[in-house]
Design a protein around this nucleic acid. Sequence first.
DNA 1: GACCAGGGTAACT
DNA 2: AGTTACCATGGT
Length: 291
Amino acid sequence: MNIYSENNNIIIDELNDFDIEEVLECGQCFHFTKLGDKRYEIISFGKYLRIFQEPDKLILYNTTKEEFEGLWRRYFDLDTDYAHIKSRILNLDIRLKEAVYEKPGIRILKQDFFETLISFIISQNKQIPHIKQIVHTISERFGDAIILEDGRRVYAFPTVEQLSVVTEEKLRECKVGFRAPYIKCAVDMVASGEISKEKLLSMSVKEAREKLMTIKGVGEKVANCVLLFGLGFTDTFPVDVWMKRIMEYMYFDEPQDKKTIEAFAMGKYGELAGYAQQYLFFYGRENGLGK
DNA sequence: GACCAGGGTAACT
DNA sequence: AGTTACCATGGT
């Protein structure tokens, strides 16, 4: 990895194991828009980023060295050695070879905790395009505007304070349906300090999961997604219907409980479970495994 | 433990 | 165009 500034852009070349399309389209992130082939805009932590990946380099437009170092470097998980992770996963189970090789550029993004929590509460019972639509609507209505150089406005995901004054009624108008009271509960618990990123990070993964599940509307799966994408606990294995199908197809000849699958995966992949899950999810989903 | 509601779009016929 | 599938969670 070689990083330098050119005009107002940050350029990264000799970057391995990174594909912007795979990173964004693998189901972990909802607040981005595709502009073209390998061309995206992302809004995270109150900042806007336009990004383009050419065959030999990644371009982050209008980004200072400070912003890159202070935000995007960590967000894209650029300092984690994915070649090493992949080789360790394949040592645990060579049958993941196809999944890992088909999507070799996946990264687990380090996203904002609060946005991740609310986004994955919204995600239940919904498909990715709809989740994205709702996250955009909520941002537009309740979040800060970011004014771009061409005058266009985009919107940051609202802060805890901004969402804490939004009624269930107003949330329902964003099409969240029966999840409105769940979102309210999560916002209130974060606003009061009952739930916080700092507290959760000081706990074991098991304690943090249990704590998250005290929020109404947060069950095992949503909690695991928040742990993995919003808190950086990579030793967790979210199981939704897709993962259930994929795992049953790969490892079992008959249907299994999600609980059983999760326990099996944790035993097999251990601290690498979160990474393994992401390779499997994207691969299995695109290939319609087990359908 | 099994079953169903709830919401609105995506993805199928 | 109409129908079915999607989806996790909580409540029964």
